[in-house]
Computed example of a mutant assay.
Amino acid sequence: MPLSPLVAGFVAVLVGFTSSVVIVFQAAAAFGATAAETASWIWALGLGMGLTSLGLSWCYRQPVLTAWSTPGAALLASAGLGVPLAEGVGAFIVCALLMTAAGASGAFARVMNRIPMALAAALLAGVLARFAFDAFAAAERELLLVATMFAVYLAGRRWWPRWAVPAVLAAGMALAAARGQLDFGAVRWQLATPVFTWPRFSLAAAVGIALPLFVVTMASQNLPGVAAQRAAGYDTPVSPVVTTTGLATLLLAPFGGYALNLAAITAAICMGREA
Rank of each mutant, 00 (worst) to 15 (best):
A77T: 01
A77E: 02
A77I: 00
S78C: 01
S78K: 04
S78W: 02
S78E: 11
A79K: 01
A79S: 13
L81Q: 13
G82D: 03
G82A: 03
V83R: 02
V83S: 03
P84A: 04
P84D: 07
P84I: 06
L85Y: 05
L85Q: 12
L85V: 05
A86T: 02
A86Q: 13
A86K: 02
A86M: 10
A86D: 10
E87C: 12
E87G: 02
E87V: 00
G88K: 01
V89I: 15
V89Y: 07
V89N: 09
G90K: 08
G90W: 02
A91Y: 10
A91N: 06
F92L: 11
F92T: 07
I93C: 14
I93W: 11
I93Q: 12
V94A: 12
C95Y: 09
C95D: 03
C95K: 01
C95T: 11
A96G: 10
L97R: 07
L98V: 11
M99T: 06
M99P: 00
T100R: 12
A101W: 10
G103C: 13
A104V: 15
S105Y: 08
S105C: 13
S105R: 10
S105G: 10
G106L: 10
G106F: 12
A107M: 11
A107H: 00
F108T: 08
F108W: 00
F108H: 04
A109L: 06
A109T: 03
A109N: 03
A109G: 00
A109E: 15
A109S: 15
V111Q: 00
